[in-house]
Design a protein around this nucleic acid. Structure first.
Lengths: 251, 251
DNA sequence: AGGCGCTTGTGAAGGCGTGCACAAATCGCG
DNA sequence: CGCGATTTGTGCACGCCTTCACAAGCGCCT
């Protein structure tokens, strides 16, 4: 789908520049973070729904406030139809274009431990606009291994391969100790976006974007809420009330 | 470490309530989300550093502004020493207590596909306050399998086991289609915090906290920034400039 | 053709978070 | 004992984001 010519994407008619791309009306970061949610909801609805969707309906499917959704979409100049709603197909195209998903992006993955293996085989990447085109590891014993149709290469080759394959996004799934070194190599190779799963802070040039996913942090945030809930219950309440300040796992 | 009696945690001396726990001064969500970062940085520094750390130093290690860090710490009534800094050990204890990490929390994991296997073996959970005590899957062919020292059980047993093991946190690593059903089972079993890796919106009662991690969304956000950067370069620039509106992966 | 109901798009207000800049406090040294 | 250097804790202002509420626009039905 969305095989259409994207140069004709609507919404950039009036104030467009030279012959370049769209000239983004610098969207708020919060909006950008939600666009992928809308996109996912739209794809789900596209299969089993009608041609159009109201802001109310889409907002419910994406789990957000409908006013927020409308404002988000209005930011990217999207045209809904008053009294009707948004054209599902058109909206999908618009969002995909803004997110730069009209082209399939090449991604490389560094670090093939536990998590790396899982990421290499994760369907969600392929089905949502990305293609892992290379795997790297520093461990010689892993180099040469075949993972999900790709051969693991030594990280030394990263620079060359990144240029050959035009890789702009790198995923770091190494231990924390190795992450900064890997990031440096990625930056040197021309990668300008990094998704970091290692629990550490990366320092990179200003033109490089880094996003971090730390699984333990997510759990710790939940732990806080557990702690809070348990302490609010105070005396009454269920089994977790008194147990909270004792032990949870068992001695 | 932090084996001490936590009832004596300082900072709640003046306005404490009955005999209950701490009575949190409802911290801002943004602060809560950063506390785990500080904690990680502190652990790193604790190994190779001095007894105290300045807000400047810790902020650098955690990748945030130092004023923000001070404000965050002040919210939880932490006592640093002016002219000196924060006592590393004490601060670790404080943050761990606030996050509810003074006890090791029992976690169960549902869904042992690619990602589930990786999560089951992820060191970061064990080393940062959590213990996976049970694995579940709906696929009969996976039940009985041994993964990282635990035997995979059928999801039917979740209710019973959750109560037995006093599980308050559940991790969903199933396909999107199964996630809501799993969430319902978890909620029924008394789980009040869910970490959801499935790309879908979960609907749960108000007293249940859900955090979502969607790997593809992170990449899509990076993709947007790639797209934006590429379009800003316009004409000059590197290899990715002209390639952006063509193809990235190769025909 | 006209009116009515529905939905989008947006102005305005309120809340939250951030970062500056400085007062208050503590330590060390002379 | 007092002074200066250093660092925390925080008042304040600014900007972003969210949410409400409503006018404007569109289609359908009569």
């Amino acid at each position: 789908m969305s095989q259409q010519r994207h140069g004709s994407t609507p919404g950039n008619a009036p104030g467009d520049r030279a012959g370049a791309v769209a000239a983004f009306p610098d969207l708020p970061e919060a909006t950008i973070a939600r666009l992928p949610e809308y996109l996912r909801a739209l794809h789900n609805l596209g299969d089993t729904g009608s041609d159009t969707i109201s802001s109310e309906g889409l907002a419910a499917a994406a789990g957000v406030n409908s006013a927020k959704l409308r404002k988000d979409l209005s930011h990217l100049g999207s045209y809904g139809t008053r009294g009707v709603g948004y054209d599902v197909t058109l909206l999908i195209e618009q969002i995909e274009y803004v997110l730069g998903l009209h082209q399939r992006r090449a991604v490389c993955l560094v670090g093939l431990g536990n998590l790396g293996h899982a990421l290499a085989g994760y369907d969600g990447f392929a089905s949502r606009g990305f293609k892992i085109v290379a795997l790297f590891d520093a461990d010689a014993s892993k180099v040469g291994e075949e993972v999900d149709g790709l051969t693991v290469r030594h990280i030394e080759d990263l620079g060359r391969v990144a240029v050959e394959e035009n890789i702009a996004i790198g995923v770091i799934a190494t231990p924390a100790g190795a992450a900064q070194a890997v990031a440096d190599v990625l930056v040197d190779a021309g990668v300008t976006s990094i998704l970091n799963f290692a629990p550490c802070v990366l320092s990179v040039p200003a033109n490089v974007d880094v996003r971090k996913v730390d699984l333990a942090i997510e759990l710790q945030i939940l732990s806080f809420h557990e702690h809070r809930k348990a302490s609010l219950i105070a005396l009454p309440g269920g089994r977790s009330a008194t147990a909270d300040d004792q032990e949870a796992v068992g001695s």
